[in-house]
């Protein structure tokens, strides 16, 4: 809040900017240039962000039998971050994601390839999957397909790719532009 206070207008502020918001709608403390803020978008992003993430997890787990899967799940999760980026700008997305996107991509790729080799240990072939069903009290019958683990790798990989795109084609370019403006 102190940040916005310090920029806060005096009498001389232009009429176009006097009603721009200074509240912190997003999770992180940073806000972009006040004139570019859009309240509706920020509020929507605030509400939708967790919802979309949960939905992406649903897609990840539903993937084997219904529409979805690691790839679409990862993309949808990526969209949540894209939404945040659109609303909050580069400061926001870089401050909430502390994990380096390349590391995420790397971990995802490693998991996916490693999982594809695991069936060899059980006498299967590469990329083979098995279905386990078991009953958990309270939750009822649970069916787990081993390809889920591959999907988790893909999910992380795709999420990492989207975040990396946001970083390189989004915030990096924005930072370049800001640097040029400051000059």
């Amino acid at each position: 809040m102190t940040e916005t206070e310090s920029q806060s207008p005096g009498e001389q502020e232009a009429w176009t900017t006097w009603d721009t918001p200074s509240e912190r709608w997003l999770l992180s403390g940073y806000t972009r240039d006040r004139r570019e803020r859009k309240i509706l978008l920020e509020l929507a992003a605030r509400i939708l962000f967790p919802t979309v993430l949960v939905f992406s997890l649903y897609l990840l787990f539903a993937g084997h039998e219904h529409t979805g899967g690691g790839f679409s799940g990862g993309l949808v999760a990526g969209q949540a971050f894209v939404l945040r980026y659109l609303a909050g700008g580069r400061m926001d997305s870089s401050s909430t994601v502390s994990l380096q996107p390349p590391v995420l991509i790397g971990v995802g790729l490693t998991i996916a390839t490693f999982i594809s080799l695991v069936p060899l240990a059980f006498g299967g072939t590469v990329l083979e999957s098995a279905i386990y069903t078991f009953t958990v009290p309270m939750l009822g019958q649970i069916k787990i397909v081993t390809s889920l683990f591959l999907d988790i790798g893909v999910y992380l990989l795709i999420l990492g790719v989207v975040l990396d795109l946001l970083r390189t084609l989004g915030s990096a370019i924005e930072a370049d532009v800001a640097a040029v403006e400051r000059r």
Partner: peptide, 20 residues
């Protein structure tokens, strides 16, 4: 589609680099 998408973003980045 995924491959085309990935390469499109790559070309975008390349165009940006060229422009810089």
């Amino acid at each position: 589609v995924v491959i085309t998408f990935a390469l499109t973003t790559f070309l975008l980045a390349l165009a940006y680099r060229a422009w810089l």
